[in-house]
Design a protein around this nucleic acid. Structure first.
Lengths: 136, 136
DNA sequence: TTAATTCGGACTAAAAAAGTCGTATTTATG
DNA sequence: CATAAATACGACTTTTTTAGTCCGAATTAA
């Protein structure tokens, strides 16, 4: 509980690697996987999600690979988590319109609102934290 | 990921229940379990941990049960999490003396320190948040 | 045409969380 | 002193989530 997903960790290393590449040359998954000690198949999936999320750009085919699409200063930790993992959700009822399926207490629950506030504070923290802050 | 353990949630309801009991009378697990819709066996384990953690006091035998040992204002969310779940640990290496078993990168890891700082911020947030804040 | 690459989904394995069960101990009360 | 209602504690099972693997397809430079 209250752990950062491995995929987010791996993404940080991958982004750092790409950010240090000279001339904006693209990097292949194999290259990053080997140099950073990240399982190839897992990293491949992570990179695809990062590409879909607009953080990196992909080039297919031989000589293909990925390049950063934004600077690490522009990527928030929260964005990374949302793309790779899922939104921060302290409790099951922390969704827009909770049903009895999410929690039998549903709306008239005394802890829902206070919990929501704490969760918001965490979201703020993760919004102002950038990948650049995390990889130096 | 980044979810509050169910046991912490249940503990909040139990503490609220006990705090509303008149005359500091003790409450049995059965009583709380039924009124709050929490599985009996699970709540029993939670109450034992809360007792060991000094948050409640137990009386054994028939007519036994639990009473609060401190006011909800005096119990931080962090304390509750530490007692019932485990310490907040963003990454495997967020321990005092990480070994290669925790992470092969061990100490010379560029994300360890920055991550530690963010984790500290969360710990601060959970330290200043009290159970009272969460159950109103 | 080939080889190195990304794409995308299905699958498996491992770990963690949630929940259950059984037995022992304690103690007020008839 | 026997009983019933309570806590104590550990082992176990089930469910859910995370991490990791595999495979076949599409793409593209040479």
């Amino acid at each position: 509980m209250l752990k950062i997903a491995k995929s987010v960790e791996y993404a940080l290393f991958a982004i750092k690697y790409m950010s240090e590449k000279e001339n904006k040359k693209c990097s292949s998954v194999a290259e990053i996987s080997e140099s950073q000690n990240i399982p190839f198949d897992l990293l491949a999936k992570i990179m695809q999600k990062l590409a879909k999320g607009g953080i990196i750009l992909s080039t297919q085919g031989i000589k293909g690979g990925y390049v950063l699409n934004c600077r690490p200063e522009q990527i928030s930790l929260n964005r990374l988590i949302n793309i790779l993992d899922k939104k921060i959700q302290f409790t099951n009822c922390m969704v827009d319109n909770p049903t009895t399926n999410d929690c039998h207490r549903v709306k008239n629950c005394c802890i829902r609102n206070p919990m929501q506030k704490i969760q918001n504070r965490l979201n703020e923290l993760f919004d102002i934290t950038t990948v650049h802050d995390l990889i130096q």
